[in-house]
Amino acid sequence: MKGLFLLIFMSCIFCLSAQVGRARIVDVFLIGGQSNATGQGYVRNIPRSFEVDTTVMFYYSRYLNGGKGGERWRLLCQASESDDKFGVELSLGTCLHNEYPDRNIALIKHALSGSNLYEQWNPGNRKGETRGEEYAKFIETVKSGLAQLREKGYTPVLRAMVWQQGEADARDIAGMERSRLYGINLNNFIQQVRLDLGAEDLLFVYGSVMPMAASRFTGRDLVRNAQKEVAEGSGSSLSLPSAIWINADDLQMRCSDYMIPMPEDDVHLGTYGVLELGRRFSQVIIRKWGDK
């Protein structure tokens, strides 16, 4: 009888210790890119049926929200150029925590509207190239956020990064050669992010760009095709494991959003489009992450 009691007691201690250890682990998800990552959805147009899960932790760079509230951990909120707009952070964090209510979920974000991959997000790891300003800001933001989590007693674990970018590399002002190099540059970017953050298996999820053709985006087809080539299982020499492309062409655009100042915008996602993109990102992560 004593042996049975001892076995049960030790089992309880083991389970409690495992729960305590798990409670200190934080699953971290990164957000980067240009304007559709920064977010052009309007806070005032978010439907009442959508409730932000404020148990999710959030850290964003000092360059977002007009320089207000960044570089510190806070409850999940919007973070775009200004506080009247939001990005995928709201639905991404909420959907992930809905799926994993017993886990600590944290997001780290840096993005800049209009930024390109060939220069501003260039890791600077190839001969003759220099590290781009946005890449440097992103890595600095992520490392700072992780360090603050450790100072709070957490053990952060990088799980995935979501990325929405490519329009700037398809613009006529970028030049067709840079559009042609998008696949090579995206492949290099993903690999270097994983290397710089010490997460060689980091899941990298990104959505299609520019569903609407426009004359100023002369390299549109090149960039869109390159996105698919980099994806896992594409059969291309640029393909990378755990790089997942998702279709975002059917999402609502800002030109069809409700009472907005830019009714002719043919580039940016609208309120419902941003919310759905974040949800789709989360669904890929959930499917690939499984029960880890």
Rank of each mutant, 00 (worst) to 15 (best):
F5P: 05
F5H: 11
F5R: 15
L7N: 13
M10L: 15
A18E: 14
A23R: 11
I25H: 12
I25M: 05
V26C: 06
G32N: 12
Q34P: 06
F50G: 08
E51L: 08
E51V: 13
D53N: 15
G66A: 07
G66F: 11
R74P: 01
L76D: 02
Q78W: 08
S82D: 14
D84P: 05
G87V: 03
V88K: 01
E89H: 02
E89Y: 00
A106V: 00
L107Y: 02
N116L: 03
Y118F: 13
N125R: 14
K127A: 12
E129W: 04
E134H: 15
F138M: 09
S144I: 00
L146D: 00
Q148M: 06
L149S: 02
T155R: 07
V157P: 04
M161C: 09
A168H: 06
R171H: 15
R171Y: 12
D172G: 15
L181E: 13
G183N: 01
N185S: 11
L186A: 13
L186P: 00
N187D: 13
N188V: 07
I190W: 07
Q191K: 15
D196Y: 00
D196C: 03
A199L: 05
V205W: 01
M210L: 15
P211D: 06
M212C: 08
A214H: 13
F217L: 15
G219W: 03
V223H: 06
R224E: 11
R224Q: 14
N225A: 11
V230G: 03
G235K: 05
S236K: 08
S237P: 11
L240M: 07
W245V: 00
W245N: 05
I246S: 04
N247Q: 07
N247P: 05
D250M: 03
Q252K: 08
R254E: 04
S256W: 02
D257I: 03
Y258P: 06
Y258E: 13
M262A: 12
D265Q: 02
D266L: 14
Y272V: 10
R280V: 07
R280D: 03
R280G: 02
G290Q: 02
